[in-house]
């Protein structure tokens, strides 16, 4: 880009053209018009600019043909159908991926559930095993009214022996 030392001044060529294009503010426009009134050469140059600009109207303007419109729309329709195809293919792939993820999630959930359930069952069996001497002697134990007597029996090793017998 050309740098102009006197940018925004009425003698700046860019500003003069911007004036013709109606792209200057009121103050710059006023300064340029003052200068044009005093400078016939500049006025002549600006007239030539305007004439050259007006000559562009001589360029032929051809409207687009019906064929052009039709082929353009057909081309875009083909692109649109391809887009839909790609999108639906992507949707099918996404559906497959979601299905796989759902199946994997179910599998993982099943495995986790089985693990927790088997651990809970195992814990329940252990508790039953531990309480087995009490369960076996429940009727007799219910006859005992004194808890200290039961502790005394335990200290005698009665229940331990039974547990050991059961364990073996």
């Amino acid at each position: 880009m050309t740098d102009h030392a006197d940018t925004n001044s009425p003698s700046d060529p860019d500003e003069l053209i911007a004036y013709l294009d109606g792209e200057v503010d009121a103050e710059v426009r006023r300064q340029i018009e003052l200068r044009l009134a005093e400078d016939p050469e500049l006025m002549q140059r600006m007239r030539e600019h305007q004439q050259a600009w007006d000559l562009l109207d001589e360029l032929p303007t051809e409207n687009a043909s019906t064929d052009f419109t039709e082929t353009t729309l057909e081309m875009v329709a083909v692109a649109a159908s391809r887009e839909v195809e790609v999108r639906s293919r992507g949707t099918a792939q996404r559906r497959f991926a979601w299905g796989g993820m759902a199946a994997a999630s179910l599998l993982i959930a099943g495995l986790v559930g089985y693990t927790f359930a088997s651990r809970a069952l195992q814990r329940s069996d252990e508790e039953l095993l531990r309480d087995l001497p009490v369960i076996e002697n429940l009727d007799a134990l219910q006859q005992v009214e004194d808890v200290e007597f039961l502790f005394a029996l335990e200290n005698e090793g009665l229940f331990v022996e039974e547990n050991n017998n059961d364990a073996s």
């Binding site: 880009m1 060529p13 860019d14 003069l16 053209i17 911007a18 600019h49 050259a52």
Partner: peptide, 14 residues
């Protein structure tokens, strides 16, 4: 840059 570009374009055209 647009202003300079158009200025050069119109000067060349003239």
């Amino acid at each position: 840059a647009t202003k300079s570009l158009l200025s050069r374009a119109r000067e060349n055209l003239r």
